[in-house]
C-alpha cells in the first residue's frame, strides 16, 4: 500500500457537500456523467448550489434532476441546447446561467487544477462573452484574461479505480473528468469497477490517486448509464 484507503459509502461522501457549495460534475452528455452521485445529491437535497458542467444533460437525467429539484442557483456551462428545461428556467430567470466557450471552460478548470490563477486568450474576443472580462495587451495583441475555475467538490465518473483513487476513464467518458478531478478542494469519484491497489497499470492511469479524496464503488449501474433512445 502507498496510501490511504479512500473507499467510502456514497451517503458519507455526498453528505460533505453543503448548501451553497460549488460543485463540478464530469461528463459530456451521458458518457462520464456520475449519475449515481448526482442522484444521492438529489436525495440529500443540498440547495443553492453552483454547478459547473459542460452541458445540462437531457430532461429527466443528471444535472436536470438537480434543476427540477430546485437545488441549483447557478449553472456554469458551454451548452444547454439539449435540455429545454434548462433553457426555460434561464429564460424565466429562476436559474442563472454563465456560458463559457467549451475549450475555455475546460482550460479554466485545468488551470485551477494546475494551481494557476488564469490565462490569456483571444477566444471569444469579438463576442458578448468578452463583455465583463479584463483585457490586457501582449506583443501588440489584445487578449482576454480568463480566470481559473475551482470548486468545493468535483463529482467524477471512472470506469476503473483502486482504493487509493487512481482512476481510468473509457471512450468519450473521459471529457471533463480528469480536469475536474484536479480542480476541486474535494474530489469524489464513483467507479464501475474497483480493483486492488497495484492492479491498475501505472502507464494507463489517467487521474493519479493524490488528487482524489473519496472512491465510491457502484455495484450496479442504473438505466441512466445506458444507451439513450432517441
Amino acid at each position: 500500500m502507498i496510501g490511504a484507503d479512500k473507499t467510502t459509502s456514497i451517503e458519507a461522501a455526498v453528505s460533505q457537500i453543503k448548501d451553497g457549495n460549488t460543485v463540478m460534475i464530469g461528463g459530456f452528455g451521458v458518457p462520464g456523467t456520475p449519475f449515481t452521485l448526482i442522484e444521492e445529491l438529489v436525495r440529500q437535497g443540498q440547495s443553492g448550489l453552483t454547478v459547473i458542467k459542460n452541458d445540462s444533460n437531457m430532461p429527466g437525467m443528471g444535472v436536470d434532476r438537480l434543476l427540477e429539484n430546485g437545488q441549483v442557483a447557478k449553472l456554469i456551462v458551454s451548452h444547454i441546447g439539449l435540455n429545454p428545461n434548462a433553457v426555460r428556467m434561464m429564460n424565466e430567470k429562476v436559474l442563472e446561467v454563465e456560458f463559457c466557450a467549451q475549450g475555455i471552460l475546460a482550460e479554466r478548470i485545468r488551470c485551477a487544477g494546475a494551481g494557476l490563477h488564469g490565462f490569456l486568450t483571444d477566444i471569444g474576443i469579438d463576442t458578448d462573452l468578452a463583455n465583463d472580462k479584463t483585457t490586457t495587451e501582449i506583443d501588440g495583441k489584445t487578449l482576454l484574461v480568463e480566470k481559473a475555475l475551482s470548486a468545493d467538490f468535483a463529482l467524477i465518473h471512472a470506469d476503473r479505480a483502486d482504493p487509493f483513487g487512481n482512476l481510468i476513464y473509457v471512450g468519450t467518458a473521459r471529457n471533463f473528468n480528469p480536469l475536474m478531478a484536479m480542480a476541486a478542494d474535494h474530489t469524489l469519484a464513483e467507479t464501475e469497477t474497483l480493483v486492488a491497489v497495484g492492479d491498475l497499470r501505472p502507464e494507463e492511469t489517467h487521474t493519479p490517486g493524490p488528487f482524489v479524496d473519496g472512491v465510491v464503488f457502484l455495484p450496479k449501474l442504473s438505466e441512466y448509464y445506458g444507451v439513450v433512445e432517441r
Binding site: 458551454s78 444547454i80 434561464m90 446561467v97 456560458f99 467549451q102 477566444i123 463576442t127
Partner: peptide
C-alpha cells in the same frame, strides 16, 4: 436573445481557429 440560447459549445473556438 430572449428566444433560444443553446450556448456556444465549441463553436467559438472552431470558428475562430
Amino acid at each position: 436573445p430572449e428566444l433560444f440560447t443553446p450556448g456556444p459549445g465549441g463553436a467559438i473556438e472552431l470558428a475562430q481557429k
